[in-house]
Design a protein around this nucleic acid. Sequence first.
DNA 1: CATGAATGAGAATTCATTCAT
DNA 2: TATGAATGAATTCTCATTCAT
Lengths: 230, 230, 230, 230
Amino acid sequence: MKKDSAEQHEIEQWMEELLAIGGDKQMTPKQISILEAAVEIFSDKGFSAASTSEIAQKAGVAEGTIFRYYKTKKDLLLSIVGPTMSRMIAPFVMRNFNGVLDMPFESYEAFLRAFILNRLEFARNNFKIIRILIQEIPFQPILRKHFSENILNQVLERVTAITEHFKAKGEIIEAPTPAIIRFTVSSVIGYLVTRLLLMPEKDWNDEEEINLILSFMLHGIGGPGQQAEQ
Amino acid sequence: MKKDSAEQHEIEQWMEELLAIGGDKQMTPKQISILEAAVEIFSDKGFSAASTSEIAQKAGVAEGTIFRYYKTKKDLLLSIVGPTMSRMIAPFVMRNFNGVLDMPFESYEAFLRAFILNRLEFARNNFKIIRILIQEIPFQPILRKHFSENILNQVLERVTAITEHFKAKGEIIEAPTPAIIRFTVSSVIGYLVTRLLLMPEKDWNDEEEINLILSFMLHGIGGPGQQAEQ
Amino acid sequence: MKKDSAEQHEIEQWMEELLAIGGDKQMTPKQISILEAAVEIFSDKGFSAASTSEIAQKAGVAEGTIFRYYKTKKDLLLSIVGPTMSRMIAPFVMRNFNGVLDMPFESYEAFLRAFILNRLEFARNNFKIIRILIQEIPFQPILRKHFSENILNQVLERVTAITEHFKAKGEIIEAPTPAIIRFTVSSVIGYLVTRLLLMPEKDWNDEEEINLILSFMLHGIGGPGQQAEQ
Amino acid sequence: MKKDSAEQHEIEQWMEELLAIGGDKQMTPKQISILEAAVEIFSDKGFSAASTSEIAQKAGVAEGTIFRYYKTKKDLLLSIVGPTMSRMIAPFVMRNFNGVLDMPFESYEAFLRAFILNRLEFARNNFKIIRILIQEIPFQPILRKHFSENILNQVLERVTAITEHFKAKGEIIEAPTPAIIRFTVSSVIGYLVTRLLLMPEKDWNDEEEINLILSFMLHGIGGPGQQAEQ
DNA sequence: CATGAATGAGAATTCATTCAT
DNA sequence: TATGAATGAATTCTCATTCAT
């Protein structure tokens, strides 16, 4: 549809703007293959169980070469998950001039739909790195700190603004914002996890599934016969 | 091949573990302190980064003693997460005599409420072990296999039955059961994760929060002003 | 001679008292052979150029065994040179009750003679360790600190007292004590170095040489024809 | 055998170095800064613990550049200490035409005074290199060999001649020349070491100290009350 | 049962040296 | 001539596991 494609374009612009992170600038082929091998192996065995010698072998370089680019094994890890961590939250880090939410969506539903699709695409493209990130956050204090201070807080702040924007417009019920956010985010992440991690091989119809989720979120799953409780 | 026989060994051990559910039978004090120390350290640093000598030290036993009880470090891990894994799904593994759902709840809401409270309690009591379990499932093929074959499938089957039970009673809308389950489970797990992992220090009013979640699930978060879409 | 042997005995007692350092208590045979091998190799190649694998090989133990006893290679070094460093200055660390010098020697010459012989013996028995010590003091801040704070200062203080004791008795000329000490110590160490390090294979007559040194020190090497200067 | 040919190479290089005494001929600025950096770092950490990459960095050149000028790290060391080693003994390598000692000093005292001042100056100017030299002589066979064969012997021979010259003139007592030399050299080196190494920060009055040393050497430190021994 | 000394395979990391540019 | 990326052997150190006591 015209509208959709125009909207899509706007969203893409709106999102890509903030993605100018690092830019993978001037990496040698060796460095690239080191990174690729590291992503593969960290993702397969976890950071601790991965060995630099295995990474070197898979990357087709000498073990010493890894340490020319990354001082330590942990540096290698951080250089992999760091940028992706930032890009994960790119859509949330938008400018918000003079108190006005720069929100190019007509409805909450449209916003969520676009958002889910966009992050699904991102998660698909960065699947392994995100896996590494999630696995290692509990064990790498530096990641945990960065995650809670930068990521979590920024996202929460932004999402709160968005939610209240739509609450003000009457599209969302009057209920505690944190609970609404948790509910929404859980539903979205629940889908992403099932889709990509638990049952990746299933033949998914994303559009349909997202419609269902949105419908559940907005109208609930309560049927006509549900008991009047409390 | 060596690998096969090793794997065979793993499986045998594993099966024995599963039979020991709830048992903790005839454990010496040393064995108990080994397990406690192992839980602590596996949970803190992850399986690979934990060292048996540190566990021994924390448990107050000699290094060799661990290997009297558990042939390998991995055996120690499995003996910890195995039983808990089974107990995680205990509520789902109820008898279901002669095709009749033995479901002692009047409403879906009552069922969910009871269920969430029950699993919240369980998760609180087994927090560290569950963390270990979640961390290690991706890296321990034997765990992954058991999880997907036994846990996931059993739970899914059971949850499907329950869901359809309430669907038949009109308490849940007519929509694809898998999507409903995903939606429900996501909401519940989302709460548990936030409650126990992301913001454990916050002062939670569980009853209230659960009421909100149930309300969201059943009636949605759509407000009066929401646009008619589709 | 009777006198000499009695004196000798007194001196030995006087010196051994303070040597109760550590005592090489309960070392396993493996630990002993590790230490022996380490002394040998550190002495031959220097600390940095010595490899733990070579030490392990020479000691006849696995490389890991070294690290059971000594956390790091540097620990191994310190555990070797530390005690010897203390024993080097043992003769200087005598009790000095109520301001009275406990000095069981009739003359300065007798004192010096006994002292030189005693330290020559000590240096001969601890030759390699002393070599390591001297080599590594410039590069190991911890050694340097200990040396300057504990060793040098203690010895200087004590030697100053001794020197002034004999100066008061008129056996030593009135001249700045530091210069006298430097002169004396240089002569002694110069002999030890030549004797043990530069020309160890020469057939030395220690008694005669020491007599010469003492004579030089006390009466100088100026001949009858020396010019009246200044 | 490999070792032999390597040794052969060492020796050849070494000889070339020796010929370059005082030369510093046609050194590029890069080469000079390499040498300066190497002196600094070898002196600070010792030869083995110094890394060529650190030297390159301090010198402001690429790692590879060092190896354009010096085949190996050891070559670099030798090219530093070699010339200085030779210059250390320069005053002893004087022409000695037709058996006549070309000794332009009236008295032994005047000679020693001039000599000490001269070598003190030299040592001050070449402090770091001399430190390296002394540190490395025990570990570099080639240095040790050269030192004992060329330096030590030449110096000894020359010093013996000088000493006997003054003995003949009656300025030095009749005593075994080696002992006299040892005594003299010890006193001088003892002063240099204290002056430059042990207490460099002290405010020294060199002239006065040297006078004291000379006085001690020539007349001894024995006071009027010294016991007549033997 | 329990110990803990001993092992040796392998881990991360360093570094002198080479070589294509 | 100078560079610096690349190497791979060597180094320090860790750790699961064994076994004699």
